[in-house]
């Protein structure tokens, strides 16, 4: 049975997922996501929610090209990603997508500025000076001026998560995928991260898809996608 398609017909679609299914192979195969169809419009803020184990993160990984679906089709800016090899998937993630996780996953040995600059260095689209300028600007935009040369261990949880958001924005992605971005933050920091992600959609035209349990975080979203047992129910 096909799942319901979560759509926003008014938007030009950045990402189109058609009947995505992800089954973990094994003696007892486990279905993580089943027949999920999603359309993400440009500048849209979409929340995926559902009970634990409902497949929210698994769907997010599929949408973020971190995992390949067992069946179904995923189009990013009109291109069928099913034909991409691993290198092209990685390059696409680098150039077009940004990730924010529950844990900041910053590289502990590098400063905030270095962490933000890292995706730019790998992509090599800008020269060194332009990379540093952009990284510094992103940190300033996210309220981290003066913290550029601090290591993650010298920053608070909220500051680290903002550095992670800055890193996700480094290569000017078309889509940010956030997995429980406020899961490890206090209320004030959560509200701050929420506002930043909302602003991204308005100011930069960047789409955001976020998985969360946090009802406060879900407020103001353009759309809510509800997942139960790997199926989209609303």
């Amino acid at each position: 049975m096909a799942g319901r398609e979560a759509t926003n017909p008014g938007d030009s679609a950045i990402l189109v997922a058609e009947r995505l299914t992800r089954v973990l192979p094994g003696e007892v195969p486990v279905t993580l996501v089943q027949d999920a169809s999603v359309r993400i419009g440009r500048g849209e803020f979409v929340i995926i929610r559902g009970p634990s184990g409902s497949g929210k993160s698994s769907l997010l990984y599929l949408l973020g090209l971190l995992d390949r679906p067992t069946s179904g089709r995923l189009l990013l800016e009109g291109e069928d990603t099913g034909t991409f090899d691993e290198d092209r998937l990685a390059t696409t993630r680098l150039a077009k997508l940004g990730f924010v996780f529950q844990f900041h996953f910053l590289l502990a040995e590098f400063t905030a500025l270095d962490n933000v600059q890292m995706p730019m260095r790998r992509l090599g689209r800008l020269d060194e000076a332009a990379q540093r300028d952009r990284a510094a600007q992103l940190l300033r935009d996210l309220g981290l001026a003066g913290h550029e040369h601090k290591r993650p261990s010298q920053l608070s949880g909220g500051q680290r998560q903002r550095v992670a958001i800055a890193r996700a924005l480094a290569n000017d992605p078309v889509l940010i995928l956030a997995d429980e971005p406020t899961g490890a933050l206090d209320t004030k920091s959560s509200a701050n991260v929420h506002d930043i992600l909302h602003d991204l959609t308005r100011e930069r035209g960047c789409s955001v898809v976020a998985v969360t349990h946090d009802m406060a975080f879900a407020q103001g979203a353009d759309r809510l996608i509800e997942l139960v047992d790997g199926r989209i129910v609303s």
Binding site: G64, E86, A90, R93, L94, L97, F105, R122, L123
Partner: peptide, 16 residues
């Protein structure tokens, strides 16, 4: 391993 995972998630190739 976590650093590797995050590097790969942000677009580093296996050969990187």
């Amino acid at each position: 391993t976590r650093d590797i995972a995050i590097l790969k998630s942000i677009g580093f190739h296996a050969r990187d």
